[in-house]
Design a protein around this nucleic acid. Sequence first.
DNA 1: GATAGAAGTAAGACCGGTCTGTCTCGGTTG
DNA 2: CAACCGAGACAGACCGGTCTTACTTCTATC
Lengths: 189, 189
Amino acid sequence: MREAIPDQILTAAGALFYREGIRAVGIDRIIEEANVAKATLYRHFPSKDHLVAAYLQARHDRVIRSLEEVIEAEIAPRDAIKLIFERLHEKADSPEFRGCAFALAVAEHGDSERVVSVARTHKTMVRNIFSAIMSKADSGSQQASAHLSLLYEGALAIVAVGRDPSAVLIARDCALSVFDTAVFTKQPS
Amino acid sequence: MREAIPDQILTAAGALFYREGIRAVGIDRIIEEANVAKATLYRHFPSKDHLVAAYLQARHDRVIRSLEEVIEAEIAPRDAIKLIFERLHEKADSPEFRGCAFALAVAEHGDSERVVSVARTHKTMVRNIFSAIMSKADSGSQQASAHLSLLYEGALAIVAVGRDPSAVLIARDCALSVFDTAVFTKQPS
DNA sequence: GATAGAAGTAAGACCGGTCTGTCTCGGTTG
DNA sequence: CAACCGAGACAGACCGGTCTTACTTCTATC
């Protein structure tokens, strides 16, 4: 067995969901791509909604792990921010990039509590990543971290529609500028 | 006749598309809500894709007109920015707000050239609005206008998922800060 | 201004296709 | 033998889009 079956299904479903959209991809497409029987899929995921949530959860884990690596690496907060945006730029500079998977999923399944919940958790944790970085800069500005995540999400949204990855670099420059003024004008605690 | 039939259809379709999603709303729902026969709909809009594009176009016209009013009003650039974000906050502070209709549409129909084209045009024009405001501030910083639209889109994206309209106010504060530093550090032309 | 015809409309049957989800069957593997 | 699996038929609903039928409304011509 090359791979556990649930992962096999999630891999196929995830690629299709992100590339073509969730509603646009039927169960039949997924089981064909995953080389799996329909009953097998429904044994592991009781409904398509569950499968979508699991796909988002897997993506969430992956993205957050990648961001936490940046935090755990002992690099200066300013460079961490730079790195995060430049990693995003790399991803955005690819024809198959379609924007934030969680925003896409909520756009299609905004009425599914299961889906929205994972997406919200993800956004909250991304904000917390920026918050952690800013607190390492010993300028406890929670405001600045909110600004950074705003720029991060804005870059994702603009690239999703306009497909021009340079927006991410512009966001990076603005983020660094926000960081600098936040640190420069920091309040003594 | 209370209203031209195409507008009647567009009104019903627009409300349903935005509220529940484009793929989630079938033609039957639209014609029922618009009190119109199916053949009538297809006489005015040759396909659902055309109808979606027309819905986006109508929304585009409305939003851009509202933004241009801000420009044409003789108010200071800084106040114009403030006003734009506070108007967005008003809209976001409503249970039926679901985020940027164009981002939602692209998420669902990213492969439709007709749909993507309207969405891209919209995003470009929004950026141009900020650009026009910044050039009135006689600091020709195109960079700052890009930052402003980044914050604008970020606020839309975050509210779309998190449903917390206060993100728009945070974006406003950041935008004003960006504006101030851009004007303060402007280059002599 | 009356009238014939063209055009627009509502209502809904209908078509072929696709959707999610269930079920059966027969094979394979531990 | 028991649990899982692939393949696929099947159900019931819904999809976008076409077409028919009967009715209304507008328009052009006399």
